[in-house]
Write a protein that binds this DNA or RNA. Structure first.
Length: 588
DNA sequence: ATAGGGTTAG
């Protein structure tokens, strides 16, 4: 028999014990009330309130409103109080610049003094909302404070610049770190990955290993994402093999990144294989797979996967529904699309602009332009330019001049400085043979001095990504590429293809228009692929815009004439050209 | 108490 438990432990001990295992807000409120009504030593009260604040601000069971209340009730919040609230309110659903205001309050009152935790948290908070100006102010305080050499602050700074897409500044901050650990390397590689700079990301990854820092699973996620963004399959396979050889833990995040990588690199089978090996799949993993099927035009697989997700009791989120709806759109499954739209409305997921966009796309691809227009008119949120462009593309395809002109007007008043819009409107008029209106649009565009975003295509050869910009001949092997293009042009012409010159906006003669078509970036990339590789190697091209109708036709013909499989990932989906036809069945 | 990671319409 041990000693009997003390019958009346002191109140403060009981309270500290309660806080220790505080399970939810209800209990927390009770504790808080007790703290305020019982006589408790000041030091205990102080520790208790700190713990309560930490729970409210950071626990998934917490409540940020209550955290703010606790903070505001404190007449003299110390640095820890500030830090905790700064961190807490950057982790909520819709974070604002509130963390920066809190930081500013410390600075302007000159009390309490920020420490390395403060700087790391507030920089993180700025990165979450891409508050570039605010973050720069924090940075200048970091310099003055002398905390600039903390590895946490240094890494937070790299991450902040990277998230604001200030990649040069990120690199500068990274280069200034004296002791780089894997966290710092990952932050920098992640920055390159998000910008789609595969070559830079890989170079840094190699350098990291050269200086003897071991990559971990987070590093690999960033490298895998870089491969996905670039659509570089050879490198992707190498990276996957590296992960297996180095026995790097393939956790849920890395698995999901791999699924996405293979899907974005055009290897949907491999994506599926990785996906099926995930033991417990969460919403991200399911969504990634569904989206993968969608961009490959495999609607049935996408919808089956969605059913699997429901059976597995994983909760679909906004991205999941985007995948399902775009899968329906890409395959012309109108009634299925409506069905899932209903499901979306029934769920707790709030439909975003993107979901409306999918529905408009679904209807337009199925040539139900009037239905799509009515759908847009009934939208509870004001349609954005993407919605109008989608409608306009539908009008162009169906040569609906009157409806198209109405849509064009809405589009141009909403976004009068985007070259893409003028090109689209001009294409509508060209499709309807309204040549005088075509030249009017061109003039308008010229007068406003608007320049089109150039088409840009890339192809990976021997582990290096080669980029081609429309009409740009700066590649070292430009002369050889030009010769290949000339040969393609002749052979395609001999096969009876007539170029679709309406796709060219320049005020030039037909022959020049034809030449301009031949300089579309995907043609340069494909020509380079023909030059540098031999069958059965698949020519894989990534393009920043959508494939133009003429290039789509020509690529089909090339695949037949040259006996090459060509896979083009454009802005919205994959096109797999084999033996003269495309996997999209000309529906895109 | 700190820094780096996965899905996102046309």
């Amino acid at each position: 028999m041990g000693p009997p438990p003390p019958e009346n432990p002191p109140e403060e001990e009981r309270i500290l014990k309660l806080i220790q295992k505080c399970p939810n807000m209800r209990v927390l409120r009770q504790i808080h009330a007790r703290l305020l009504t019982r006589p408790i030593p000041a030091s205990t009260l102080f520790i208790s309130l700190s713990k309560l604040l930490t729970f409210c601000a950071l626990s998934s069971q917490g409540d940020i409103h209550y955290a703010r209340k606790l903070f505001n009730q404190n007449p003299d919040p110390n640095t820890f109080f500030y830090n905790t609230l700064i961190r807490g309110c950057s982790q909520i659903q819709n974070p604002s610049k509130e963390p920066f205001s809190l930081f500013n309050r410390m600075i302007s009152k000159n009390y309490p003094c920020p420490n390395t935790f403060t700087f790391a948290f507030v920089l993180k908070a700025c990165s979450v909302v891409s508050a570039f100006e605010e973050g720069k102010q924090v940075q200048s305080r970091v310099v003055k404070s002398g905390f600039g050499s903390s590895p946490f602050v240094e890494t937070a700074l790299v991450n902040f610049y990277a998230k604001c897409e200030e990649i040069q500044l990120a690199r500068k901050a990274f280069d200034e770190i004296s002791e780089r650990n894997s966290v710092a390397w990952s932050a920098m590689i992640s920055g390159y990955a998000r910008m789609g700079f595969l070559n830079e990301a890989l170079e840094l990854f190699r350098e990291m290993q050269m200086v003897g820092v071991a990559p971990d699973e987070v590093t690999m996620v960033t490298v895998v994402s870089a491969c996905a963004a670039a659509g570089a399959l050879d490198t992707a396979r190498w990276v996957h093999a590296f992960i297996e050889k180095q026995l790097i833990t393939v956790d849920l995040e890395l698995s999901t990144a791999l699924v996405n990588m293979y899907a974005k690199c055009g290897c949907i089978e491999k994506a599926k294989e990785v996906f099926e090996q995930i033991a417990v799949k969460d919403t991200y993993a399911w969504s990634s797979m569904i989206m993968g099927f969608a961009i490959h035009g495999l609607a049935e697989d996408a919808l089956e996967t969605f059913s699997g997700m429901e059976e597995a009791k994983a909760k679909p989120n906004q991205v999941t529904f985007l995948g399902v709806l775009s899968a329906c759109a890409h395959s012309g499954l109108v009634s299925a699309g409506w069905k899932y739209w209903e499901r979306l409305l029934e769920s707790n997921v709030e439909p975003l602009m993107e979901h409306y966009g999918c529905m408009v796309d679904l209807l337009c691809r199925a040539n139900r332009i009037e239905e799509a227009y009515k759908f847009v008119e009934a939208m509870p949120i004001s349609p954005n330019s993407v919605i109008w462009r989608t409608l306009l593309m539908g009008c162009r395809k169906n040569k609906m001049l009157d409806r198209g002109e109405i849509v064009a007007e809405r589009l141009l008043e909403l976004e009068p400085l985007n070259a893409e819009n003028y090109i689209l409107v001009s294409n509508l008029f060209a499709a309807c043979l309204q040549w005088s209106k075509v030249s009017l649009v061109r003039k308008k565009m010229k007068n406003k001095g608007i320049k089109a975003v150039p088409g840009c295509s890339s192809i990976e050869v021997d582990g290096f990504v080669h980029e081609f910009v429309m009409g740009c001949w700066t590649h070292p092997e430009a002369e050889d590429i030009r010769n290949v293009l000339r040969e393609i042009s002749e052979r395609v012409h001999a096969a009876g293809h007539e170029p679709w010159v309406a796709a060219v906006l320049h005020d030039v003669g037909d022959e020049e228009k034809e030449n301009a078509l031949c300089e579309h970036s995907e043609r340069l990339a494909i020509a380079f692929g023909l030059l540098k590789t031999k069958a059965p190697v698949v020519i894989r091209v990534i393009k920043n815009l959508r494939v133009c109708p003429d290039c789509h036709e020509v690529t089909k013909i090339i695949s037949k004439l040259y006996g090459r499989e060509i896979i083009v990932r454009d802005r919205v989906r994959f096109h797999k050209f084999v033996e003269g036809s495309c996997s999209c069945k000309d529906f895109w």
